[in-house]
């Protein structure tokens, strides 16, 4: 029997457990409220009480006039999210492999990556917007906004890869090398299967951070809005629960993606332990 790591009285334990539960309630409570309220009856308002239960506001979501261009914005956000996800995965793995060795400029590149994470988003947005402006290019969601979002997702991707490769046992690769495996074979059949769960993690971050990104996209998306920009526009002029319906749909979509990623990770882990 392991000793509890910190001596805590029963009262201390209870207080901390209660504190943690409150924190979780604080995290999820508001979201739950708007999910419930999005099922308001047709005559219901933005706050409780519920005036009947209906899917009215979800149906309104798909009517052209109710919100701006919901379908278009959603399509663009899903496409952009997938693009950012794929790019983040490939570039993060490659850079993660590179950083296992020291190379000229590795320190500078690392600093630049961290800077990408901590420079206020509005500055990145403004800078890229002006850069395109000065270069005479029209900003669009698939060029300037794509690049702007990568400056946000790549640092997360790379930090995850760092965590993986720090724990990575080089002996497996050396064994493959001794058996005559080519660099590609070593990567494909040795490294990739070991890092696979984390790669799914990087993909999850890449997609969801892009899908929800607002500040860096604001000045770089050009004339066609992504979903968060559309939602932001709605906050100022929509005063019906259709806003909550939109919140429920996007949050539901995020949860679906997160669940799929976690399931994939669990499946990969399960397969790995079975084959041992």
């Amino acid at each position: 029997m392991r000793r509890p790591p910190v001596t805590l009285t029963l009262i201390g334990r209870t207080v901390l457990t209660a504190f943690f539960c409150l924190f979780v309630l604080f995290l999820y409570g508001p979201t739950l409220t708007i999910i419930i309220l999005s099922f308001q009856g047709p005559n219901g308002g933005l706050t409780f009480p519920m005036n009947g239960v209906s899917l009215h506001w979800f149906a309104r979501l798909f009517e052209p006039q109710a919100v701006g261009d919901f379908a278009g914005a959603l399509t663009r956000s899903l496409l952009l999210g997938s693009m950012v996800m794929a790019t983040t995965v490939v570039i993060s793995i490659a850079a993660g492999l590179a950083f296992r060795r020291r190379f000229i400029g590795s320190g500078a590149l690392f600093t630049l990556t961290v800077a990408s994470l901590i420079i206020p988003s509005i500055l990145v947005s403004l800078g890229i917007g002006l850069l395109f402006n000065l270069a005479g290019l029209d900003p669009t969601w698939y060029t300037s906004a794509f690049g702007a979002q990568l400056t946000w997702t790549l640092p997360f991707g790379l930090l995850i890869m760092f965590a993986v490769f720090n724990r990575f046992n080089r002996a497996w690769e050396e064994a493959a090398l001794d058996l005559g495996a080519s660099p590609w074979q070593r990567f494909r059949h040795v490294v990739l299967p070991i890092i696979a769960p984390s790669v799914v993690g990087v993909a999850l971050f890449g997609f969801t951070l892009s899908y929800d990104e607002f500040a860096r996209t604001l000045l770089t998306a050009g004339s066609d809005n992504t979903l968060p920009l559309e939602i932001f526009g709605m906050t100022t002029n929509v005063t019906t629960p259709v806003l909550y319906a939109l919140g429920t749909v996007t949050t539901g979509l995020s949860f679906l993606v997160i669940a799929a990623a976690l399931a994939a990770i669990a499946l990969i882990r399960h397969a790995a332990t079975r084959s041992e």
């Binding site: 950083f99 296992r100 630049l112 500055l123 990145v124 800078g127 890229i128 990568l150």
Partner: peptide, 25 residues
């Protein structure tokens, strides 16, 4: 050469979409 090739895409993207925009600012 391998590490340089592997790090190049990251370096190019950060140069184009972070360094250059900050210089523009």
């Amino acid at each position: 050469r391998a590490p340089y090739l592997q790090a190049a895409p990251l370096a190019v993207i950060l140069a184009a979409f972070l360094l250059l925009p900050m210089i523009v600012l």
